[in-house]
C-alpha cells in the first residue's frame, strides 16, 4: 500500500503543481497518518493529564467557594444574633437609665419640697417676729410722740405766759392724738 501511495504521490506531485494541493490525493496518506498521530497525542494528553487536573481544580474551587459561602452565612447569623443581643442590652440599659432618672428626680423633688417647707416655715417665723417688732416700735413711737407733744404743749403754754397744770395738758394732747 505504501508503494502505491508513493508512486501516486510522485506522479501527482509533478502533475498538479498548478492545481489545488488539497486535491493532490498522493499526499493524503501522509496527512492522515500525521493527523491521527497528533490527535492521539492530544487525546492522551487531555484525558490523562489536562482534563482530570482542570476538573479537579474547578471542583476544588467550587468546594472552596461553597465552604466560604457557608462560613459567611454562619458569620452573618452570628452577627445578627450579636446585633439582637446588643439591641436588647441597649433597651435594657435605656429602661434602667429611665428608672434611675425617675428615682433621682423623685428624690430631688422630695429634698426640694422639704427644703422649701423648711424655708417657708423660717420665713413665716421671721415675718411674725418682724411684725411683732414693728408693733413694738410703733407702740414706742406713739408713747414718744405723746410725751413730746405734752412737753411741747407745756413749753408753749408757759411761753405764752399761761399757767397750765399737767392734767389739762394730758387730756388735751390725748384728745388731739385720737382726733
Amino acid at each position: 500500500m505504501a508503494s502505491t501511495a508513493e508512486t501516486v504521490a510522485g506522479a501527482a506531485g509533478e502533475a498538479t503543481e498548478k492545481g489545488m494541493p488539497q486535491l493532490n490525493f498522493g499526499t493524503w496518506p501522509n496527512q492522515i497518518f500525521w493527523l491521527v498521530v497528533a490527535l492521539v497525542i492530544i487525546y492522551f494528553v487531555l484525558t490523562r493529564i489536562a482534563l482530570p487536573r482542570i476538573a479537579a481544580v474547578l471542583a476544588e474551587r467550587r468546594g472552596t467557594i461553597g465552604n466560604d459561602l457557608a462560613a459567611a452565612e454562619e458569620l452573618k447569623g452570628k452577627a445578627k444574633a450579636a446585633e439582637k443581643a446588643y439591641n436588647l442590652a441597649l433597651e435594657q440599659a435605656r429602661a434602667e437609665a429611665n428608672k434611675i432618672i425617675a428615682a433621682t428626680k423623685a428624690e430631688i423633688k422630695a429634698d426640694l419640697d422639704a427644703a422649701m417647707a423648711k424655708a417657708d416655715a423660717e420665713i413665716s417665723a421671721k415675718a411674725a417676729e418682724s411684725e411683732k417688732r414693728i408693733a413694738e416700735i410703733r407702740a414706742g413711737a406713739m408713747d414718744a410722740v405723746s410725751e413730746v407733744a405734752r412737753d411741747t404743749a407745756g413749753a408753749l403754754v408757759s411761753a405764752l405766759g399761761g399757767q397750765a397744770d399737767a392734767a389739762t395738758i394730758d387730756a388735751a394732747v390725748a384728745a388731739r392724738l385720737k382726733g
Binding site: A2, A5, E6, G10, G13, G26, T27, P29, N30, Q31
Partner: peptide, 10 residues
C-alpha cells in the same frame, strides 16, 4: 519522495 511517514511542513 513523499512516503506516508515522511515528516512534512504540515
Amino acid at each position: 519522495p513523499l512516503h506516508w511517514y515522511t515528516p512534512t511542513n504540515q
